[in-house]
């Protein structure tokens, strides 16, 4: 095996590697094996615990850990300095980060410091003549675009759940080292306010019941809440209900909201704008309920009902209870 081909930026929560970071390592491993090169990852945080060992088990050959109280919360300049240092030390051909709250802020900072091209929110990465072809949605998901970087390192942020993680293999071996970098700090962290609603997390739910503009009010979500509760799922929304305050903005599904890939997804009283579909197209089964038979959601759904959800949902709920 040769030099470091790919550097990923890992994120961890409470000493465990985040799912996106394992997905990035899975994607990186594939590319690196094809290039005959190694995969390194950098983990920045406070109390990163076993995340380093986990990264090796998920495919990293080398892990660089910056573990310090000053990294407890995302600090853009400090985080960027560490990634920049790792890029300088390792000279990777490719740098990958997640399209997450941290990654979408961090990756452009690093790309500008390195004066290199970055493609954001990629859903597919493949090699062509040794260069990485990065595919991403554009125009709110109405079109796809393939990009190549004409500078090095080639950088991409990768959409959550778009890549497959490898099975965790604790017998893999790899080096875990520390890394440090000084930074010119400009951003002062004041506090974090958690707004997550109670119940099953939207990103983890196996059933998602999503409402759109046609729900019309906070009360309009009641049958959706009932259906979600019965199916042990979570309730989400398109942008208009969030903007109108009918539901918490943390429940927004779409290009700039949460990405979900449940087994069953109900799209209710929503048109199916491409920006929204970008957040739910990974669902295995999509059910659409809409008064408008021309709504775009019927073009992506597997099951469709044309009609008023206020009348359809109670009957659906009753029948599911009856079937047991």
């Amino acid at each position: 095996m040769g030099e470091i081909g790919i550097l990923t930026v890992s994120e961890c929560t409470d000493g465990a590697l985040d799912a996106i970071s394992a997905e990035l390592l899975g994607a990186a491993r594939k590319l690196a094996d094809e290039l005959g090169q190694k995969v390194a990852t950098v983990i920045i945080g406070s109390g990163v615990g076993d995340a380093g060992k986990d990264a090796v088990a998920y495919g990293a050959d080398e892990v660089y850990v910056a573990d310090d109280a000053k990294y407890a919360n995302y600090q853009p300049e400090a985080y960027a300095a560490v990634v920049q240092q790792a890029a300088k030390d390792l000279s990777p051909a490719i740098i990958l980060a997640g399209q997450t709250s941290i990654g979408r802020d961090l990756a452009p900072r690093v790309a500008f410091k390195l004066q290199t091209g970055l493609s954001t929110d990629c859903i597919s990465l493949k090699l062509d003549a040794g260069r990485m072809i990065m595919s991403r949605a554009v125009y709110g998901g109405n079109a796809m675009a393939d990009y190549v970087s004409e500078s090095d390192p080639q950088m991409a942020t990768v959409r959550v759940k778009s890549q497959e993680a490898l099975a965790k293999d604790d017998s893999r071996s790899g080096d875990v080292k520390t890394i440090a970098a000084d930074a010119d700090i400009k951003t002062a962290f004041i506090e974090k306010v958690t707004e997550e609603v109670t119940g099953i997390k939207l990103e983890d739910a196996d059933v998602v019941v999503c409402g759109g503009r046609g729900i019309g009010s906070e009360e309009g979500f009641e049958p959706l809440n009932e259906l979600a509760k019965m199916l042990h799922g979570a309730v989400g929304a398109t942008r208009p209900p969030c903007d109108n305050g009918w539901i918490a903005s943390t429940q927004q599904i779409g290009l700039t909201g949460k990405i979900v890939s449940p087994t069953l997804y109900f799209g209710i009283a929503l048109s199916g704008a491409s920006q929204h579909i970008a957040g739910c197209s990974g669902a295995k089964n999509i059910v659409a309920i809409n008064k408008d038979d021309e709504a775009n959601i019927f073009n992506v759904a597997h099951y469709g009902v044309v009609g008023d959800y206020k009348k359809i949902l109670p009957a659906l709920i009753a029948k599911v209870k009856e079937l047991g």
Partner: peptide, 26 residues
């Protein structure tokens, strides 16, 4: 620009929706 656009295309959706037809919403 450092990033070069190679190809712009409309994604193909193989969506085939089974419509539920009934007398009334219930």
């Amino acid at each position: 620009a450092k990033s070069k656009l190679l190809k712009l295309y409309i994604p193909v959706r193989e969506g085939k929706c089974e419509m539920i037809e009934a007398e009334d919403p219930a």
